[in-house]
Amino acid sequence: MKQIALYGKGGIGKSTTSANLSAALSGMGLDILQIGCDPKRDSTRMLMHGTFIPTVMDLVRERGDADLSLEEIVFKGYNGVRCVEAGGPEPGVGCAGRGIIATFQLLEKFGALKGDVIVYDVLGDVVCGGFAMPMREGYAQEIYLVTSGELMSLYAANNICKAIKRLASRVKSKCRLAGVICNAKGQPKEEELVAEFARRVNSRLIEFIPRDRVVQLAELNRKTVIEYEPASAQAACYRSLATRVMENTSLTIPSPLEIDELETLAYAYI
């Protein structure tokens, strides 16, 4: 079983990329579980045709975890992709990170962490230990950074490299950086910049996903691009990403950049 996690700056397109990746992987005949690890719970919405599925934390809040069943937290979406949303507290209260940990404990209790590939789609940045949970022992061993060529997006990706490096230093940890996915904003020389960033942090650019209006159209129609426009170049891009993820054996311990190095790098590609 392959377990991968997508991390990146908020709003960079992690959920869109994750959902399309899961859809493309399912098209390869694989059994996929996608877990949204963000209290805003929209990771799996396109796989579920626009439905916000009940989150694990919603159910726990309403009923406690004693009498929940697997069927109530795992939902089948497009092409049989199994979807889970961790959910979390209302904004401004409680501890969302602990919610992620509690969700994982519950999923383990139910034996839900199974299939050919598990895709963890994680909130914008590693803000606390709870959001590093998908990188911990027994969960995702392959971390993909989703970034555009914008400096703040690269900055967030670089911070995640720091978290991976820290976790990778632990004796039992198998968590590694598996690559960088460029979800382009349409900047000039963006692919070159992100590729160079990936190289500098001791990794590589796995896929360049260009900006394309079909993504918006698919979302407005509550579908992944894979489902909405399977013959499009964008869908081919996601399928290429899926193939590369499955073939990827290049897992590294990242070497995060200092902030001035990062700024110099971004400046060089203006």
Partner: peptide, 10 residues
């Protein structure tokens, strides 16, 4: 309990 920690204890 854990739920109060996650959702707030107020």
């Amino acid at each position: 309990g854990e739920c109060d920690i996650i959702f707030g204890g107020e």
